[in-house]
Write a protein that binds this DNA or RNA. Structure first.
Length: 223
DNA sequence: GGCCAGGACACCA
DNA sequence: TGGTGTCATGGC
């Protein structure tokens, strides 16, 4: 049995795609972090950089704060910038981290309470925070607030393009068309994004040994 | 030395 | 709403 997303014959649903990736790759274990605060820091550090650089900064945060909310909130902006620096865009990312943690502190880092308070408006609230765009907002919703979202990052858009969906240049091009249905639990949404990015690391990253496996115009067939 | 990596935002028309 | 410039680091 093989599927080709977007073909005239078979429409592969997002749910089907998740099941196939899960069956082939096993659980992704995402997001690999020990706390929600670490996930938040990671999500901001990784913006438009590579894991190597982000991980250098992540390690500095681990050494300095152990990702303890109170310690992070106590950092002045200069200290924050020192920790963020290896990840690049250190001024922007420092402001973003400071803004998010200041807001969370107002709510005592009570994530379920925040979710209850804002409800369906939580995504817009996150987007209103400086340095939190659509992708990071969806990462936080999925991994921090347990609100399942489809995260249409570059790897996801590359994968869907290979599966036959055109016109995915921008984040919302995929986001609006392929949201998760009710069958996705929060755990499955987390796993799904992890699987897509692990797949992308192997096949799409320029320095992967499989880089170039897919050429422009190729179609990926899952079977 | 140039290019790229899991973005976000200000500014402009 | 969409296009463009800017933000920064480190590895290859």
């Amino acid at each position: 049995m093989s599927f080709l997303i977007g073909s005239d014959n078979v429409q592969l649903t997002v749910y089907d795609l998740y099941q196939k990736l899960r069956k082939e790759m096993g659980p992704s274990g995402w997001w690999p972090a020990d706390s929600k605060e670490e996930i938040i820091i990671d999500a901001i550090l990784i913006q438009n950089t590579n894991w190597q650089n982000a991980d250098k900064a992540r390690q500095l945060f681990a050494d300095k704060t152990a990702f303890a909310p109170t310690k992070i909130c106590q950092l002045d902006i200069a200290s924050l910038e020192t920790l963020v620096r290896p990840a690049g865009f250190y001024r922007n990312k420092s402001k973003a981290i400071r803004g998010v943690f200041s807001w969370l502190a107002e709510h005592d880092f009570d994530y379920p309470a925040i979710r209850r308070q804002y409800g369906d408006d939580l995504r817009n609230k996150l987007l209103a925070l400086h340095g939190i765009g659509q992708e990071t907002a969806d990462v936080l919703l999925t991994y921090v607030f347990d609100v399942p979202r489809f995260i249409s990052d570059k790897y996801a858009r590359t994968l869907f393009t290979l599966l036959g969906i055109d016109g995915l240049a921008k984040y919302q091009d995929l986001d609006l068309r392929y949201q998760l249905d009710d069958r996705f639990t929060p755990a499955m949404a987390k796993d799904f994004h992890g699987l897509i990015d692990e797949f992308g690391k192997v096949y799409f990253h320029p320095r992967s040994k499989f880089a170039g496996s897919f050429l422009a115009g190729d179609r990926l067939i899952l079977h």
